[in-house]
Structure formats: C-alpha cells, structure tokens
Design a protein around this nucleic acid. Structure first.
Lengths: 145, 145
DNA sequence: TATTGTTATACTCTATAACTATA
DNA sequence: TATAGTTATAGAGTATAACAATA
C-alpha cells in the first residue's frame, strides 16, 4: 500500500516556506521593512493600486491588516496615498521614487539569498521547480471550495 | 536592472502552501483530525518516538503545543503513550492499529488531491518540482542562523 | 442603502514561565 | 541540579464587528 513514497506536499512546502521567510526577515529588517510592508511595496512596484481593499486582497491580507503598514510607509515617504478624485472614499496608492529605490534594494538582497539556495539544485530540477511554482500559482487555489 | 524577472520565491511558495493547507483541512476534518494531529500520526507512522519533546521537534512544534493533541489521540485509541521503563520521566509514543489505519485513510485522501494538483504540471516540471522539494528539505534551514 | 477606509474589540494561536516527578 | 512532561499565564497576530465619510 506504499502509494507514492514521498512526504506529503504540504509537509515539505510548509517547512521550506518557513525557513525561506526566516531567511528573508533579517534582510528586510536591515531595510526597516516588515514582511507586510515588503509585500505592499512589491505589489505597488508593478503599478499603482486603486483602493486599499484591492491592494490587500492582492497580497492575501485583510483590509484592516495593512492600514498600520500603509500609515508607516506613507509617513516615511515610501508611498503616496491620495483620495481618488473619481470616488473620494477610495485611496490611490503608488510608490514614491524613494519607495521604488528601497524596494529594489531589499529585493536585490533577497534574490541574492534565493540564488544561493537554488544553486543547490541541478539545472533541470531548478528549471522544473520554478516552472511548477509559476504554473501552480497561476492555476491558483481552485482547490478549497 | 530586471534581474531575474520572477516573483520572489516566498511570494510564490507562501500562497501555494496556504492553498494546499486549505485544501487538506476539509479532508482531515472528515477524519476528525487537526493538522497537528495528522502531523503526529505521520511522524509516528515512520516508527515510535521516545519522548514527546523529540516528537514535537520532529514536526516543528513546541513541546507544549502537542500535549492536548496527544491527549486526544490517546483518548481515541489512536496512539499509545507509555512511560519509558529506562527513564520514567519520558513517554514512549507509538501508533495503535487503529491509528495506523486512520492515518492511512487520511493520507490517501490527501494524496489523491495532491495528484490532481500535480497533474497540471508537465512531466518534466513535476519531476523537477518534487526533486527540488526533496533536496531543499534535506539541505534544511541552514539559512536562518 | 451600499461601500471605502478606519477604529475598537474579541478571538485564536503561540511562546514564556512556573510546577511536578523523576533522575 | 537538571530534565520530561504538564499546566497556567501572557503575548502576538488575526479576524469580527461597529463607526464615519462618501456614493
């Protein structure tokens, strides 16, 4: 009855994700960023967001969770948060030049560490790993419900 | 300066792990198991454990976190928890026949779901993905400290 | 009335510290 | 005194519900 003879996927992915995050936290801290703050900067680096709710959903957070983060990022001049002229309830969010710079620096540090990790993999596995992540991410969580 | 042109690893792994867990929880629930309970059964399915602390560390938990879980599993006759004759402070932990059966059933359900997910991947990527997970898991978190 | 952002509250999960029993 | 297990407490993180402004 030894079906597939490997640990469960989640049993492998969860610790790997945890150690990846543990490895990235010191780097982010060097730049004065929390993980949520970095997630916000990353999302905004792809372009402005119309509405905090949209942004929150985009990074898998609750609307209420990122407010303190946005306050801080704005106070530090890393993002701009302006009322949407078309609907003054909503806020337009975008990176400032300083925000883009800081995100770039933090991301470079993270990428360097990630490369060290990926170098442990044979080229074929590395390619397959990254391809699989892209595919599984794209197909999304049409898993739960 | 578009270095690697892909999302950060953690940014891909974290949501994937989350959705994997979300997909497995209902299956575990059908068998009356929490994720920690399933982790315990999985660890013990490889063989008995000498000491709860050892078991906890093995599954990445705190000693205090799994006590209630062990109480429940024992009360349901899924594990045996006997004092170690050699050191009566410690407890020897092992699956009962019922525990082994339940773990097998739950794992089968999870594996079936996982296969559906993996079927979305081209064979080469699937192989590379699983290889990479094994390698990265083995090399462990010599990342943090 | 519905929605965006905000604030305040409650809840869950996890870690810390104190206790017992063995050694 | 040190350690395994247990229990009780406190803390962090998260979600839920109520509120103000705008539509």
């Amino acid at each position: 009855m030894g079906s597939t003879d490997r640990p469960d996927l989640a049993a492998m992915l969860a610790p790997l994700t945890r150690s990846l995050i543990a490895m990235e936290l010191p780097i982010l801290d060097d730049h004065g960023l929390t993980m949520w703050a970095y997630s916000v900067l990353t999302a905004l680096s792809a372009g402005p967001a119309r509405g905090q709710g949209v942004l929150a959903q985009e990074i898998g957070a609750d609307k209420t969770r990122i407010i303190a983060t946005l306050d801080d990022l704005q106070a530090r001049g890393l993002i701009e948060r302006t009322p949407d002229p078309a609907d003054r309830r909503a806020r337009l969010l975008e990176l400032t030049a300083a925000g883009r710079r800081l995100h770039g620096a933090a991301q470079a540090g993270i990428r360097a560490r990630e490369e060290e990790l990926l170098e442990r993999l044979p080229a074929a596995d590395r390619r397959g790993f990254l391809n699989a992540l892209r595919i599984l991410r794209a197909s999304g969580p049409e898993t739960g419900e």
